[in-house]
């Protein structure tokens, strides 16, 4: 069974390109366009990893990660934050939100894939 990754970003193009990179590498990908939708999908889809943008409508990436820590089912899902303003987040928040890696926009899809593989290992069936 392949690993499942949730990608959350309000920019359709970013969502599209990250999803394609990960799918091409053999991962299952689910997408969300805002923080609230991402949280719902986290609960219903139980992904192995979340890649989220920071600035999103309704619930931003940090609030999403903090909310994930507050729910038993999603508590241990690691998160990668994809952001153009990572400096806005304090180290304490990073720790509390369980953010395992930051990638600054503009980012390299190759770099995203490398980070994902670091955290999850190569997807099943592609080794």
């Amino acid at each position: 069974m392949s690993r499942k990754i949730l990608v959350a970003d309000d920019e359709a193009h970013i969502l599209h390109v990250v999803s394609m990179k990960l799918r091409n590498a053999g991962y299952d990908v689910v997408t969300a366009v805002d923080g609230e939708e991402a949280l719902e999908l986290c609960k219903s889809e139980c992904p192995d990893l979340v890649i989220t943008d920071y600035q999103m409508p309704y619930m931003d990436g940090l609030e999403l990660c903090l909310a994930m820590r507050a729910t038993e089912a999603t508590r241990n899902i690691p998160a990668i934050m994809l952001t153009a303003r990572g400096f806005d987040i304090s180290p304490a928040d990073v720790e509390a939100a369980g953010i395992r890696a930051f990638l600054a926009k503009p980012f390299s899809p190759r770099e995203v894939l490398r980070k994902v593989e670091e955290l999850l290992g190569a997807p099943a069936g592609v080794v």
Binding site: V17, Q55, K105
Partner: peptide
């Protein structure tokens, strides 16, 4: 901060699609 974020968003797409 806002402008750099706004500039970086389309730039991120351009860079990512070219790399793809």
């Amino acid at each position: 901060s806002n402008v750099s974020h706004e500039l970086k968003t389309p730039l991120a797409s351009i860079k990512a699609y070219i790399e793809m």
